[in-house]
Design a protein around this nucleic acid. Structure first.
Lengths: 169, 169
DNA sequence: GTAGCGTAGTTGAGCGTTGAACTATTCCGC
DNA sequence: GCGGAATAGTTCAACGCTCAACTACGCTAC
């Protein structure tokens, strides 16, 4: 919240307030999302020393053939600003889990490379992460609810970030 | 991520990895949740100067008969730690939107009180907030999807925070 | 009434995020 | 090739959050 408020007024007319049912749906979604993200992050952090954000970076790198990725691409994949990713990679570098390497094709670019130590750290954290997701999410839901969750997520994603949703399936 | 890692091993046995369908459901939910929360927060912050977290505090206070609430209760309602809320209320106090008042019944307690200026700020922000929620969420969803969203949220909430889900409806 | 414990809330240090300013390199039109 | 615009990434300062330490008050039992 560093911004000066610049006047960007709403379209005129009475706001379309939420009715009671919409309020309940919105609040249920909001609270459950915040609580779930928070709990998974704390659980992972306390058990492995790796926050969920850092875990995502390690996963992204590990899934690439050479275990390396351009900084910008990595930032996009991790829903991170470039600044944030740059800081995060610096800290992962201090731990010896990632190293930077100048990009051969583009002198402006940097590659983030997952080290063996980083891969080992990821291998240690992955079971903790997946158990958390099962315990807090999948174990609570019926197959129908899981299908609904996916449908909801993909519907929203088509608007929020069309690139990210695979059109094929 | 300030913690030293204390060994809290998983239950033994092979981790229950996610299959492809579960991966897709999980990633769709995760990305959509993160993007939606982020977008709503940025939109509100840039248009009104009030972050989503601060907005929730103002809303909680405004919904109470006397527009005041105990700090702990407010923290619970806003999914906030006491420390975080204490800092946040201090900053809202600097803006003149909230003031602190010692609690008559319990000398240890403090009441956070919404000022007229705070209420006016909330009135200005509320239309921006509701338009954001409509634009990014409800306008994209069918009635069935909204119902599914509520069901999903309430199911998760029953585990994550049973107090918060109303058993009646 | 006072010792000990529990609860309410605040404070401070350290870390992470943000947004803007900055450097370095590449791309494009001429 | 050369000047200007665009792109890639980093850095800095300000702010917010976390965790642990701390103050202050209330509760209970002796």
């Amino acid at each position: 919240m560093t911004s000066t408020v610049s006047p960007q007024p709403l379209p005129p007319g009475e706001p379309r307030w939420l009715d009671v049912e919409e309020q309940k749906a919105w609040r249920a979604w909001l609270y459950s999302a915040q609580l779930l993200l928070d709990r998974l992050d704390r659980d992972l952090t306390h058990r492995t020393g790796i926050s969920h954000a850092y875990y995502e970076i390690l996963v992204a790198l590990s899934e690439t053939p050479e275990r390396m990725m351009r900084m910008s691409e990595l930032a996009d994949r991790c829903l991170s600003s470039r600044s944030r990713l740059s800081h995060a990679v610096s800290r992962l570098e201090e731990r010896g889990w990632v190293r930077r390497q100048v990009c051969a094709e583009d002198g402006r670019g940097q590659l983030a490379v997952l080290t063996e130590e980083g891969f080992a750290a990821l291998e240690g954290a992955a079971p903790v992460h997946v158990e958390g997701v099962r315990r807090e999410l999948f174990d609570r839901l019926s197959p129908e609810q899981v299908a609904g969750m996916r449908d909801l997520g993909e519907t929203l994603l088509r608007h929020l970030d069309p690139q990210r949703v695979h059109p094929s399936d």
